[in-house]
């Protein structure tokens, strides 16, 4: 899957997983930080995003430093997924 399509898919999955009912995919800036600023997500959301990576993409992120980097933004999530897919 190309990154652009993956980013759009992730936006929809994030809205669904985090119950962001008032948002549409267009409201999410893929380059904006997911936590504190941007969507203003918190630690419970981080857990849900890790689950999303595991359930939807089969990727387990064990290392805390790697988690932080992978969940910086929607773009970062997409890059992380693509890099792991290419490794696989």
């Amino acid at each position: 899957m190309e990154k652009t399509a993956l980013v759009e898919q992730l936006k929809t999955q994030i809205i669904e997983a985090l119950l962001l009912e008032d948002l549409t995919p267009n409201d999410i800036d893929p380059a904006a930080p997911l936590f504190v600023e941007g969507l203003g997500l918190d630690s419970i959301d981080a857990l849900e995003l890790i689950l999303l990576l595991e359930k939807q993409y089969g990727i387990r992120v064990e290392d805390p430093k790697e988690r932080r980097d992978a969940l910086q933004s929607v773009n970062a999530m997409a890059d992380y997924i693509l890099s792991h897919k290419s490794e696989g």
């Binding site: 119950l19 419970i44 857990l47 849900e48 689950l51 595991e54 359930k55």
Partner: peptide, 9 residues
């Protein structure tokens, strides 16, 4: 495995 935290909370 892989349980969502929201229904638990």
């Amino acid at each position: 495995q892989s349980l969502s935290s929201i229904p638990f909370i």
